[in-house]
Amino acid sequence: MLLSELKTLYKLEWRQFSRSQGQWLFPVMLFILVIVLFTVGIDPEAHRLQQMAPAVIWCAFLLSLLLALDHMWRDDYQNGVLEQMLLHSESPLQLLLHRVVVRWVLSIVPLLLCLPLAISMLQMPMTIFMPSLLALAAGSFVFWSLGSALSALTLNDRRPALMSLLLLPMAVPIVIFGSRVIKQSAMGESVSGLVLMLVGLSILSLSITPWIMFAGMRLNLD
């Protein structure tokens, strides 16, 4: 029963993704634009670009995700679909969690595809591609799941900025570890410990956030 429910959810999400009139491109465009703006703000010499690259990639990545996070629940909350889904689901917690994961995959894959472009724009060696890919995937999941929880908590607020202001301070550890991965892998050092740290954080967030999401929705639907 739950399985068929999840299958329907996947199909529905995919259909919405392919029907979104190019909306999935907006985060990608933002990602590239932030990198461009950072670069034109300094003298783009190779060593300076390389020094900035870890921070620029991470900030651009997280800001782009913010754009996608804004639509996590809000649209369905406003047209009443969210409450009906919770009301009729066999297991609302699992349903919410699956939706978070599906949307995360659909949002980060286009961004990760742009990563080689970002790396070459910032004149970093291509050897950092794999480690930074892993770090961005793990780190973005922490950010994404916490963001989904916080946007469920702030559903009743019509200003989209509030969730970002609550979420961004919590991104400090992700940016610290994540940009360190890019920096160290560019110098040819081992980064497995740092990546594992990010994976650990994403497991921690996975175990906490569904409850917060659910509580937030119950509260805002009352």
Binding site: L146, A149, L150, L153, T154, L166, M170, I208, I212, A215, G216, L219
Partner: peptide
């Protein structure tokens, strides 16, 4: 309720 949850996060 929301603020309490946020404080615990």
């Amino acid at each position: 309720k929301a603020a309490a949850i946020f404080a615990l996060i």
